[in-house]
Amino acid sequence: MIDDSGDKRRGEKTAGALQSTARYRPRLENGEPVATPGVQFSQPWILLLPPPATPAQDEKN
């Protein structure tokens, strides 16, 4: 895992989806399929931003 985006669970879910469902056309060298190390994949996660802080109302005396 290069970057779990600050959440281990997101990293695990991404790695799990890749491991169980990804299918690649393999690299061919001289017409023969070969393993390729160092392949990277980036999965975006869309997260909700916290609501903007509401300015505190002036205290009334």
């Binding site: 991404t14 393999p26 990277q40 980036s42 869309i46």
Partner: peptide
């Protein structure tokens, strides 16, 4: 919303599996 990226590195074997 904001976008955060999880980046994973691995080996793709000769059968095309991770």
């Amino acid at each position: 919303v904001e976008v955060r990226n999880v980046v994973v590195e691995y080996t793709v074997n000769a059968q095309g599996r991770i």
